[in-house]
Computed example of a mutant assay.
Amino acid sequence: MIILGVVLLVIGFLAKISILWTIGIVLLVVGAILAILGGTGRRVGGRAHWY
């Protein structure tokens, strides 16, 4: 999810499409939060591991 967010940020920046830029930021933030929660050992959405 983090990689997809970065890709959308780059595409949105290069093509000057603001909706891709916004979606990229949202995916990047959500992916980072899920990665941090999963790394601390907390269950995310009832799952012990998040890939």
Rank of each mutant, 00 (worst) to 15 (best):
M1K: 07
M1E: 07
I2F: 02
I2A: 06
I3Y: 06
L4N: 14
L4A: 15
V6S: 10
V7D: 10
V7S: 14
V7K: 11
V7T: 14
L8P: 09
L8H: 08
L9N: 09
V10I: 14
V10G: 09
I11H: 13
I11F: 14
I11Q: 13
I11S: 13
G12Q: 07
F13K: 06
F13M: 15
L14T: 08
A15G: 07
A15V: 02
K16D: 05
K16R: 08
K16M: 11
K16G: 05
K16E: 12
S18P: 09
S18K: 06
S18C: 11
S18M: 14
I19K: 09
I19V: 15
L20S: 07
W21M: 13
T22Y: 14
T22C: 14
T22D: 14
I23Y: 12
I25A: 15
I25L: 15
I25T: 13
I25D: 07
V26S: 11
V26C: 09
L28F: 10
L28Q: 08
L28A: 14
L28M: 12
L28P: 05
V29E: 04
V29F: 13
V30L: 13
V30A: 11
V30S: 03
V30K: 04
V30N: 08
G31A: 06
A32W: 04
A32R: 10
A32G: 04
A32C: 07
I33R: 04
I33T: 05
I33N: 01
L34Q: 11
L34R: 13
A35S: 11
A35P: 02
A35F: 07
A35R: 05
A35I: 02
I36N: 01
L37M: 09
L37T: 05
G38Y: 01
G38H: 01
G38A: 01
G39H: 03
G39W: 02
T40G: 04
G41W: 02
G41S: 03
G41C: 02
R42T: 05
R42Y: 11
R42C: 00
R43S: 06
R43F: 00
R43D: 01
V44D: 02
G45V: 01
G45Y: 00
G45W: 00
G45C: 02
G45I: 00
G46W: 00
G46R: 00
G46F: 00
R47Y: 00
R47S: 03
A48V: 02
A48F: 00
A48Q: 03
H49R: 06
H49W: 04
H49A: 07
W50L: 15
W50Y: 09
W50G: 05
Y51Q: 09
Y51S: 12
Y51M: 08
Y51A: 06
